[in-house]
Design a binder for these strands. Structure first.
Lengths: 157, 157
DNA sequence: GAAGATTGACCCATCAATCTTA
DNA sequence: TAAGATTGATGGGTCAATCTTC
């Protein structure tokens, strides 16, 4: 019997992954690590802006009135609520956003993009988009990108 | 002219991404964040083992003699050298690995899998593999997985 | 001097507990 | 009591500087 695929010791209560599965999975992990690392480094070097901070600015600019509730921001940037609190603390210190108490529900707070934040984002965006194209998009055809898009949609939320 | 694709203000020195590009890129980021988060949580809950620690144990077991130089380990788990030093510190404290000075080159150090580490890995592996299958592999056909594998190979190292 | 690895200072994120307002 | 957000404690990571051995 050919055991070359699993390389699992006899008696092990689980079978290993096939080469195809391994390549898809490990490649996915390596791809993410490599691209995210370099994008963050480039953004940091040229604009003093970590990737997560950039992500916050982008989401605020896309939002109505340049403002988002803290919990909305957390959902948008894939961070915990407390993580967003700290992140916004830093951005406030840098003058890129400000907080605004919510008028109707005084428990709530908005995070609002400042003019300085908008300006910084405008400068950083070309760097970031260039990086995404160069390090990720450029490797694939339009059809392949469309394929990837549909594949991602299948993963459970 | 149809500007609906870019949504970029006039005068902006870069064009935005197309919907197809956005779906492929953002989906990639969300997919990674979601899957990695849950895998780490499951491993941590059932075996008290973070994903990076698990990754170290796997790489050691695959290696000749269950041992790897620190710099080799760093390359394998996609961490900086100092990051690996800290990580191995923790694993040594847990008794899952031990350090061994290199005989030929006394600057170097090996990280060696202990029996306890091997045992812990054997228990954790089914949980991890099940998670990878359930949260990632199960969403795709074999052909699609093979496709993903070839796509990842195109990204620059 | 350079390679292999560690350490010190610091950055960034999470969970659980907390504070405030509804 | 519950919802929105922040805080304290802690885990885990990076870079730059350092120590040892080649």
């Amino acid at each position: 019997v050919d055991k070359s695929i699993t390389a699992t010791a006899p008696g092990t209560p689980c079978a290993g992954l096939s080469p195809v599965e391994l390549d898809a999975w490990r490649g996915f992990l390596r791809a993410h690590a490599a691209v995210a690392r370099r994008l963050d480094a480039e953004l940091q070097e040229h604009h003093g802006l970590p990737l997560t901070s950039y992500d916050v600015l982008v989401n605020l600019e896309d939002a109505e009135g340049g403002r988002l509730r803290m919990y909305e921001l957390a959902g948008a940037v894939l961070l915990s609520l407390s993580g967003v609190t700290r992140l916004v603390d830093r951005l406030v210190a840098d003058g890129l956003v400000c907080r605004e108490r919510c008028a109707q529900d005084r428990r709530g707070a908005f995070c609002v993009l400042t003019d300085a934040g908008r300006a910084r984002l405008a400068k950083a965006r070309p760097t970031h988009l260039d990086g995404v194209r160069r390090l990720f998009l450029a490797a694939f055809s339009t059809e392949e990108l469309a394929g990837l898009g549909t594949l991602w949609r299948r993963l459970a939320p």
